[in-house]
Computed example of a mutant assay.
Amino acid sequence: MQDELREYRVTAEPYYQPVADEVELYEAAYAARMPMMLKGPTGCGKTRFVEHMAWKLGKPLVTVACNEDMTASDLLGRYLLDAEGTRWQDGPLTMAARLGAICYLDEIVEARQDTTVVIHPLTDNRRVLPLEKKGEMVKAHPDFQVVISYNPGYQSLMKDLKQSTKQRFGALDFDYPDHATETRIVAHEGGVGEDVADKLVSVAERARNLKGHGLDEGISTRMLVYAATLIGKNVAPLAACRMALVRPITDDPDMRDALDSAVTTFF
Rank of each mutant, 00 (worst) to 15 (best):
E110F: 09
L131A: 01
E27I: 08
L5C: 04
Q17L: 09
A28E: 08
N151V: 04
V246Q: 09
K199H: 07
Y16L: 14
M95P: 00
P121K: 10
L210R: 14
A96G: 07
R6H: 05
E205K: 04
T63K: 09
A54R: 00
F266A: 11
N125Q: 12
L210W: 10
K39D: 01
L122F: 11
M53S: 06
D173G: 04
R256L: 03
D260Q: 10
P237G: 11
G212P: 12
N151Q: 02
P60H: 00
S261R: 13
G100R: 10
A244M: 11
G190T: 09
G100D: 14
W55A: 01
T250P: 08
A12D: 08
D254L: 04
Q113S: 15
P14D: 03
T86H: 10
Q145F: 04
C66D: 14
S164F: 04
R208I: 06
L210M: 12
S220N: 07
P18W: 04
T221C: 09
E13M: 08
Q17C: 14
D254Q: 07
V192Y: 05
W88H: 11
Y26C: 03
V10F: 00
P60M: 03
L122A: 12
H141C: 10
D74Y: 04
D3W: 02
R256A: 02
G212Y: 06
E13A: 11
G153E: 14
M1W: 01
L259F: 05
R222D: 02
R206W: 02
Y30N: 13
E7G: 01
G43R: 00
M223Q: 15
R48K: 13
L38R: 10
I231Q: 01
R168H: 10
R87P: 02
A187V: 11
E217Q: 10
M137Y: 00
R242H: 08
A96I: 03
D195F: 00
T86P: 09
K59N: 08
A12R: 02
H179Q: 10
T63M: 11
G45M: 00
L210Q: 10
L99N: 15
V196R: 03
V23P: 03
E22N: 07
M53I: 14
M223H: 08
A227V: 06
A54D: 03
Q155D: 14
L5A: 01
E107Q: 11
V138K: 01
I108K: 01
R87M: 12
L61D: 01
G135D: 01
G212D: 07
G170I: 06
G91P: 15
A65L: 15
D257L: 07
I119F: 06
Q145P: 09
M37I: 10
A236K: 12
D143Y: 03
A31L: 13
H179A: 11
S261T: 09
G58C: 02
D252Y: 00
A228C: 06
L259N: 09
T63S: 12
T123C: 15
L210E: 05
G135K: 00
A187N: 11
V192I: 15
